[in-house]
Design a protein around this nucleic acid. Sequence first.
RNA 1: GCAGGCCGGGUGACCGCGAGCCUUCUGGCUCGAGGAAAGUCCGGACACCGUAGGGCAGGAUGCUGGGGAAAUCCCAGGCGGCGAAAGCCGACGGAAAGUGGCACAGAAAGGAGACCACCACCGGCGUAACGCAACUCCGGAGACGCCGGGGGCAAGGGUGAAAAGGUGGGGUAAGAGCCCACCAGCGUCGUGGUGACACGACGGCUCGCCAAACCCCGUCCGGUGCAAGGCGAACAGGCCCCGAUGACGUAGCCCGCGUAGGGGCCGGGUCGGCCGCUCGAGCCGCCGAGGAAUCGGCGGCCUAGAUGGAUGGUCACCCUCGACAGAAUCCGGCUUAGAGGCCUGCUACA
RNA 2: GCGGGCGUAGUUCAACGGUAGAACAAGAGACUUCCAAUCUCUUAACGCGGGUUCGACUCCCGCCGCCCGCU
Length: 116
Amino acid sequence: MQRRHRLSRSRDFDAVYRHGRSVSTRYLVLYWFEREAGDENAPRLGVAVPKKIGGSVIRNRIKRRLREAWAQLPEEAPARNDYVLVVRPGLPEAVETRGFDWLEERLGEVLQKAQL
RNA sequence: GCAGGCCGGGUGACCGCGAGCCUUCUGGCUCGAGGAAAGUCCGGACACCGUAGGGCAGGAUGCUGGGGAAAUCCCAGGCGGCGAAAGCCGACGGAAAGUGGCACAGAAAGGAGACCACCACCGGCGUAACGCAACUCCGGAGACGCCGGGGGCAAGGGUGAAAAGGUGGGGUAAGAGCCCACCAGCGUCGUGGUGACACGACGGCUCGCCAAACCCCGUCCGGUGCAAGGCGAACAGGCCCCGAUGACGUAGCCCGCGUAGGGGCCGGGUCGGCCGCUCGAGCCGCCGAGGAAUCGGCGGCCUAGAUGGAUGGUCACCCUCGACAGAAUCCGGCUUAGAGGCCUGCUACA
RNA sequence: GCGGGCGUAGUUCAACGGUAGAACAAGAGACUUCCAAUCUCUUAACGCGGGUUCGACUCCCGCCGCCCGCU
C-alpha cells in the first residue's frame, strides 16, 4: 500500500472519528467518512492499535497484516471515503492460530456489515 | 557443577513496503532492526539557555592499583562472607567529634553500676564436751547459726542477637589482666609490596553494636533536553498591571553579576514543510605492548534513517520446527526478558 | 523524550525499625412470629526478588503492575 493510500495526519484521523460513521464486530471496528465531493482518487486507510493489545512487535505485525489483507480485497471499499480500522483485543492471538485467510474473512465481514 | 565467548532458522521464486542511485519515464540495481533495539537506572557527546561566579542548602559517591571521555563502568589485587571445589557475592571511609537508638527479657544495653550469690571485719542474740559435711585445723577469749552495719569483689547465676576480651594456670579472705602462657583486638617499630594489606618483634593491657539512623571527612555535580535547536511558511491587534526605589535572568535561599523589559486577559495565527539525521570515543583483520581491562601501528570497509512511522502475503525444499522481542539524535555501561545450539577452560564424583 | 506518585484484609484507609489495626463487606450466633436494625464472635492482607540489621510494611538496590503530569 503506497503512502498516498494511507491516512497520514492526526487531523485526518480526527475527522474520521468525529464526523464519520462506525460499525464494529468482535475483533474490529471500522470508521469511514466521505471526503470532499468529487474527490474520487482512492480510498485511504488508517490502522489504529491500542497499546493494550500488546508490545510493539505484536502491534506492528497486526498492522502489516491488516494492510496486506486490505490490499488483497476486490473493490469493496468505495474510493471516495477515508477509513480507520481499530483493532480490538484478542485479534492478534486469533490470527496466530487461525491464519491469514481467517483475517481476510473478518475484514470482509466488517465491510459487509457497513453496507457501503 | 562453575566461568568465559559465539550463533539466534536457512535457501529459492512471485507479488508488495521504506531509502539511496541510475533512468530510454517505467522500470532497473543496491541496502533495509537487536543482543538486548527494552527498562530509562547511571555516564557522556551534541545543541540551546541576556553567564554557568561564590557561599549555604541539596544530591551523588566511598578498600587499593590500573584502564577509560565519564560513570551506580571494566580489569587485576586486598579484606570479609558463602561453597567440598572450580568459583560466586559485598555502598568495603569514620563509632576515643557530637546527637540518637539497642523492643521483650534481664540486676545491668555502655565511660558503669551491683539483684542473687561469694568474702573477711565489726556489733548484738542464741548456743556446742564433742561441735563443724569431715579433720591431726579451729572452737565457752564463742567455732557454728540468725539478725544488723559499713566494706571488698565482679569469677559464678539466669536473660538476650549482643553482657566490658577467650581458654588454661598462678594468685587471693573472696576475687579480678592482679600476674603468666597461647589466641583475638589495639598501638609502635621493622620487613615485603606502588598501594589496600600481609608477616614478624615489642609494648601496655582492651577501648560494645547500628552511620543502606542523623551526622563528620574526602571527591564530584549550572539547567534543559533532538518534541534540543536552526531555516522557511502563517498570524502579526486591543486593554490592564509591574518596572532604573531594579521588574526579569535566578531555578531552594543569600550575596555577587548582567540587563530593559516583564506579566495577565481577550482576539488572531500555527496541529503542516526542510535541515538537524547518521562517519562514529565506528566496525573487521593482522602485528606489537601489557598479567588483564585496554592502548598503539598498518591495511580494509561504509553497515537502517522512518515521521500514523518502512520486513508482510503466497509457494517449494531442508533442519535440531525457530525464544525474548521492533531502531526514532548518537555513543559507553548497568539491569531485566529469553527456545535451542556450538566452542574453550576449570572443579567434583564415577 | 523527560518527570512525579502509589501498591497493606474482598473494598476504602492506618501503623517511632520491635505482636500488622479501624470502618464497611462476608459467614455464624443472639434478639424477633419473620425481615430490617442492633449486639457478640470468626474469616482474612504488607506486589515480587535480593541486601543492611539481632530483627524490615518501614531503610537501600533491582524488577513487576497501576495512575498522573510536561513538551
